[in-house]
Amino acid sequence: MADAVMRRNTTQAIVATSLLAIWLVLAAFPFFWTLWGSFKVEADFFSRQSWWNAISGPATMLQTGGHFTLDGYRGAWIQREFWRAALNTGIVTVCVTTISLVFGTLGGYALSRSTRRYTFWILIAALVFRAMPHITLVAGYLLPFFKLNIWGVLPTAIVVLVAINQPFTIWMLHSFFMSIPKDLDESAMVDGCTRFQAFRWVVIPVMWPGVITTGLFSFLLSYNDFAVTAMLLNQDNQTMVPKINSFLGTVQTEGTIMYAVAAVVSATVPLFMLVMFFQRQIVSGLTAGAVKG
């Protein structure tokens, strides 16, 4: 875009570039700082004397004899059994993403292909549901779940997360399906398919980009969730995010805050990877709803 439309004078360019640079530092610095610091000891990462200590790490040298230490990670993953939480997160996110996509593609397809009035109402209801803070719904789950004796276990959390994410999922998939011409499924039906066969054999194969993007967001929603998993899972079944929160209560008193730092970094790394590999899909997903207006 280095053409006339985008050309600007030097002052403007300097101002714009420096603003952008400031934003990039704000956006990214905390992550790299914490990543670096997670390999130091507490006295360095939380140093009152000089922030330089967190980078050079004199106390780390003194206490462990090396520039970097894995003590935080060892403490979190082994001593505090963070691996269990990581495993639970894995189970929850994989199941939630898969089930959400199955339900969502079916529903989103139906909504995109029907021209009837009720589709409008379903979409509006989904919009309202999407706006509900999740914690308000959690308040409604607890008593019934206690009564049914299904509180605390992973399947419950999975089903709840699927349902809570449905409004978002069907909206997003609906707008992706809208971009696929109806001609495609109609010719399949004339060629001899039932509605479902047309959906499965003809529409889904060209929907992969949309399915992958929506899958990413389903993954993010379940991975990042705190309200549902914190309230609906018992101590043994906790996923990473509530687990880290329950770390906080104890580590402060025990002086093992670096465990929490290490756990936070561990839980952030997968997200980093995700953005790195799926940047394009994430960008297209964020704009999917907007393009339609």
Partner: peptide, 16 residues
Amino acid sequence: PKDRDISMVFQSYGLY
């Protein structure tokens, strides 16, 4: 549609 023994050419062809 599949049971009507017809075939159809669409404006935008509807190719897979």
